[in-house]
Nucleic acid binder design. Structure first.
Lengths: 206, 206
DNA sequence: GCGAACTTACTGTTCGTTCAGTTAGTTGTC
DNA sequence: GACAACTAACTGAACGAACAGTAAGTTCGC
């Protein structure tokens, strides 16, 4: 952890605290991550996270907000591309491939999102602001690609998120017991193919 | 919480402590459930859980073991019935309906299993014994019903568990934001139909 | 030199564990 | 069948560790 930054820069410190907190909250959970550990990993003192963010709870909320904002910023343009491609060519499989591939890749890049969302779900969404909890970009793309078919759109949305989310969420238990690693490139490629197959068949039938 | 039992009965006390611990661990998580709360809910003192189980960690492990044993005891005969039915009649959809319906119903009856497994997955399976982490009964039934088709069996297994598990796991976040309740009878019925549709189509194509 | 960034020592609280003591239940003895 | 001797169940107060929050003090950038 190189300390080669300008000695005092509130913006840099804030970001490094958020990075450290994201890592520790997602790996150890809220209670077992301490402010001292977060400070140490960020290269600052115990008291600075509270000084900047107001307290442990507020810091946790800030981590979540940053992750969710980043998710939408990353997925929105890709989902829009998938929609445009589908509406221009009518090729449902190609559109699904683009969408699912982007989604799974993002989740693999930012595993903290999967872990923190899983923790929020189990803790009754204590720290989550009201509003949609899954990506609105992915949701609207699925809606457009599904078309006006009679299929239950909510079920389809739950299934899509479940298929992409679950392997990463349960990587340390179910996947590990199977000798698979959801973070590996091989597994991700096989998973993408499988998910696209599933969704394509479901949509074709409706 | 009626206190009408024989004044001293270790077996009853053990069971009531396990019940209380299952409830509190699954709802609040390991760290936020205290031994005093567990004792109070079980109608015993602060010290008794440790006296019987050796400590908080060991109590948590005992809760998990009991849940997993109960899962297998409940699902094994139903999965066997599904396999027999499929091998006698060749009716894949009927077999899937029986299997998926049993699985989802069990998860709804014992939501603590879903919650605790979710927590274990996020905490690196700290308290879980080695070995398979999903129901071996459901797994073997899926294997038999899928037949020797070329489909990737691991992917199919992950998908099956994900489709049934995920709505309950994320009931407080994603489902709540959609205005759905995974514990309700209507949602469960719709979900069962959807999951069977998905699996049937995937298997039919392979 | 002033204000913001940052540290460090400290406070109050929470909680798991321990253990000395108490009581209910059982066994053996006559 | 009653009474003593003994065991196991159970209590609750006390201890010590861990930790979030605080505030007084220090240092840096401008």
């Amino acid at each position: 952890m190189p300390r080669s930054r300008r000695r005092r820069d509130a913006d840099v410190s804030r970001r490094e605290i958020l990075d450290a907190a994201e890592e520790l909250f997602s790996q150890r959970g809220y209670e077992r991550a301490t402010l001292s550990q977060i400070g140490r990993r960020a290269g600052v003192s115990t008291g600075l996270p509270t000084y900047f963010f107001g307290g442990k709870d507020a810091l946790y909320r800030a981590v979540l907000e940053r992750l969710i904002a980043e998710r939408e910023a990353r997925l929105e343009p890709l989902a829009a591309r998938a929609i445009r491609s589908f509406e221009r060519t009518g090729d449902r499989r190609a559109a699904l491939e683009l969408l699912i591939s982007s989604y799974i890749d993002f989740l693999r890049e930012r595993p903290a999102l999967v872990r923190l969302m899983g923790r929020e779900a189990l803790d009754g969404a204590r720290h989550l602001a009201p509003g949609p909890r899954h990506s609105v970009a992915v949701a609207s793309a699925i809606e457009r690609i599904a078309g006006a078919g009679g299929a239950d759109l909510d079920q389809l949305m739950i299934t899509t998120v479940a298929l992409c989310f679950f392997p990463l969420e349960h990587n340390d238990t179910m996947l590990a017991a199977m000798g698979r690693d959801a973070m590996s490139d091989e597994f991700a490629a096989a998973r993408k193919r499988h998910v696209v197959d599933v969704l394509e068949r479901v949509l074709a039938a409706s």
